[in-house]
Amino acid sequence: MKGHIVLKMATRMMVPFILMFSLYVLAHGEISPGGGFQGGVIFASGFILYGMVFGVEEIYRKIKRKILIFMTAFGVMIYSGVGYITMFNGGLFLEYAKLPGLNMKSGNSMGLLFIEIGVFITVSSVMLLLFIEVSKKYDN
């Protein structure tokens, strides 16, 4: 599959749109089907497509494994971090209305978005990590 010119060109054209679409899915998570999980998977699938066509080493060169592991943890930390902020602000865990500077309405919307961003980061990096770890072994 490697080295085929049509595949390469098509992938190059598609990947930016896939990544863009994942962000769209992420941003519309609260009001329409979608959200962090789905967006994250789409985001990772863009990179995976790139890796399948250009070889895994290409991804490996662009994103360090260490960074991926860090991002995996970082997403969950954002998630629970939002909960901590609400607790420090006098609310209960994940009580979005108590986010600083936000009220009941905007807090619920924004708080959900923050959490979805956390989920997005974790899911996309986990998916990429799975792909890299498994394919690295059988690539050569």
Partner: peptide, 10 residues
């Protein structure tokens, strides 16, 4: 523990 499990990885 949930937060710190992730913090340990980071």
């Amino acid at each position: 523990p949930l937060f710190s499990a992730m913090f340990m990885v980071a």
